[in-house]
């Protein structure tokens, strides 16, 4: 009987303590951040993959070595390189990242021998209505700025193997968006 009364009273006390705690919390400041209006500043955020802009030349550093492509676990990167018409070196003509597939592991940044890649600036609300917008052309800002590396004329891989002649003549009708910029 005493045991029973004791358990009932201790139960009641525990319930009362619980209620006291919830009441105390009710007068605390809510922690909600009303998101679009308020924002928490990002300390480190893995944005989409982008090219590093080198300070001196204002150009990208990619040497089209394919290391990132080989490593990428999600296989979301694609790279097209062509032979330079000037000195026969590999020149990057197209670099695309499908951000929809990217798993943000930053392994491509790790393996890059020239440190040409980085995570882009925090852009938390990256939203698009079509999937196409999330396939990113990393060369686009450089092409828009007209940096030297994007202007190197390249041998058209589709053209017959007459390098000198091909270099002299402008490339054929533009098939992809980068073709006009390259010419």
């Amino acid at each position: 009987m005493i045991q029973y009364l004791k358990s009932v009273s201790s139960g009641l006390i525990s319930l009362a303590t619980g209620m006291a705690i919830t009441l105390r919390y009710a007068f605390k400041k809510p922690v909600t951040v009303i998101y679009p209006k308020e924002r928490i500043p990002m300390k480190r955020f893995k944005g989409p993959i982008a090219f590093v802009k080198e300070e001196k030349s204002q150009d990208h550093l990619c040497i089209a070595c394919n290391a990132c492509i080989k490593t990428c676990p999600s296989r979301c990167m694609s790279l097209v390189a062509a032979k330079s018409a000037v000195d026969g070196k590999r020149v990057l003509t197209d670099f695309k990242v499908n951000y929809m597939l990217c798993s943000l592991c930053s392994l491509c940044i790790d393996v890059c021998p020239t440190d040409a890649l980085k995570h882009d600036d925090p852009n938390y609300d990256m939203v698009s209505l079509t999937q196409r917008d999330l396939v990113m052309d990393l060369l686009k800002p450089f092409r828009d700025a007209g940096t030297p590396l994007t202007k190197i004329p390249v041998v058209d891989p589709a053209a017959p193997k007459t390098p000198v002649a091909a270099a002299a003549t402008p490339p054929p009708a533009p098939k992809s968006p980068e073709a006009p910029a390259a010419s």
């Binding site: 490593t71 676990p73 592991c105 392994l107 393996v111």
Partner: peptide, 11 residues
Amino acid sequence: QNYLACWPNFG
């Protein structure tokens, strides 16, 4: 895939 590319799987 290669050893390095296994990382995201563990996350």
